[in-house]
Design a protein around this nucleic acid. Structure first.
Lengths: 254, 254
DNA sequence: TCAGGAGTTCCGCTGACCGGAACTCGGTGG
DNA sequence: CCACCGAGTTCCGGTCAGCGGAACTCCTGA
């Protein structure tokens, strides 16, 4: 919904964005509700999008299309990041045997771009391509701590949504945590996004010091002590950063 | 180039499709050449696409955008397939320590949707999201053998491009190979797509017998004997198929 | 200094896109 | 059995988003 610009592209994006990470299929009516587009317009648009395979028809509605999958896989920077990170994430999983994530900063949220482990149905805090608020997750705080000051100000001045009793919702407290994270390079989370979940995260910094992504390990709060894995997570993040920088300098000399 | 329909969406797709799997960045002029769009039109379009992050500006041109990456990650059926397959592919990699691929049938080509191993720079025959012809790769032949008869006819009646001295370019020969593959459920390739490369592949069949994807293991022809791994590849493909079917029946009863 | 290619801006024309309204199709409940 | 409802589809005249030729600037290399 919310302010679809009156251009074809705007409507297209509004339809595509209507699909959340957990929505496999959406029906015509549900899409109409989410996008706010008139029925006739939506109908034509869905037809056109299906023709170019940005959408596919499912058993009882529409889903994001196979073509989109292909294009997404090719999106160069992100793909590289995931390719480079994978070995490190696998290594981290070997060490911890807990769910490992790679998260990207996107607007005021984290987007999960890779995930290893969490094969058991229960523990997964988030699906691939899913989003989480920055202030309530270790990975989000790691990103936020190293993000542009302007972004930090924006997030801190907006109300911080409470997700569990332990979510940090006071700006002062969060600001102090972020300062610590900036110094130590490690972010923690104890049941702040979800009861029963604990998490460590570390930022991946680019050659210019800007945050590119963050790595995290999450596990059940009862048996999983995030502090025990801080060093491993930090090492993985650093390893990824170094590999990225090496690649960048190599390819620029090409 | 080739017949861009005169609609915005058509132009958009033509721009997005201009990016091949190996193109990280394309300049304005190169995009103009590939899409055949007039400069002014292209310029505006690129601006609009950048605004919605379907494209990003790179150091010296445009690249597929971060938003596309997110959307692609969410494309439901393909994502599921990759999620389900990953453990099997990892297992296969553990057994063989050679490059493992998951490939999807898309038009008259294979699209590589997942890849494990090939960490060494040399051996990778293909990038994620890349395409290869069906007749010249084990994975392509596995897909083709089990595809709709109509597709097989089309591919066999078009000229078969030679990629190496050993590429199968005679329709009769290929037809016989496909028949064998259909019986055995395993496809081979000996330096047909690339000199020095050998490969085994097996199809992943859906509950209705239609091909969904194919799994392959590829290695250097000198030390890698594809026959030795036929059983493992076949087992992985079957395992994936069974898991998919189990999931499908479970969720339909929901 | 000039040539040529890359990228940007201008602006008037027009058909691709818009969306209200009227329709069909399958439930469902009175 | 019909009235109603929500989902999805089709029609069609109006209009503005998008079009693209042309003229422009900004580089870079000879």
């Amino acid at each position: 919904m919310s302010e679809v610009p009156n251009t074809l592209l705007g409507k297209v994006m509004s339809v595509l964005n209507a699909f959340g990470a957990d929505d496999d299929e959406l029906g015509f009516a549900e899409l109409g509700r989410r996008t706010g587009l008139p029925k006739a317009t939506l109908h034509r648009l869905l037809g056109d999008l299906t023709d170019v395979r940005l959408l596919d028809r499912g058993t009882s509605g529409y889903r994001l299309g196979g073509h989109l999958f292909q294009l997404g896989i090719r999106a160069s920077v992100e793909r590289r990041l995931v390719e480079v990170s994978t070995p490190y994430l696998e290594d981290l999983y070997e060490r911890t045997h807990e769910t490992v994530h790679l998260g990207l900063l996107e607007g005021h949220e984290v987007v999960y771009a890779a995930k290893i482990g969490g094969h058991r149905q229960a523990s997964s805090p988030s699906r691939l391509g899913g989003r989480m608020p920055l202030h309530a997750t270790a990975i989000g705080k790691a990103l936020l701590a190293h993000a542009q000051p302007a972004l930090r100000t924006e997030v801190l001045s907006a109300p911080l949504a409470r997700r569990t009793p332990r979510t940090v919702v006071t700006p002062g407290m969060l600001r102090r945590q972020l300062a610590t994270i900036r110094q130590t390079g490690v972010a923690y989370e104890f049941e702040e996004s979800r009861v029963g979940l604990a998490c460590v995260a570390a930022p991946v910094l680019g050659h210019d010091g800007a945050v590119v992504a963050a790595v995290s390990v999450a596990g059940p709060a009862i048996r999983f002590d995030p502090r025990a894995h801080a060093a491993s997570v930090h090492a993985a993040a650093t390893g990824i950063a170094l590999t990225l920088i090496r690649r960048a300098t190599l390819s620029s000399g090409n």
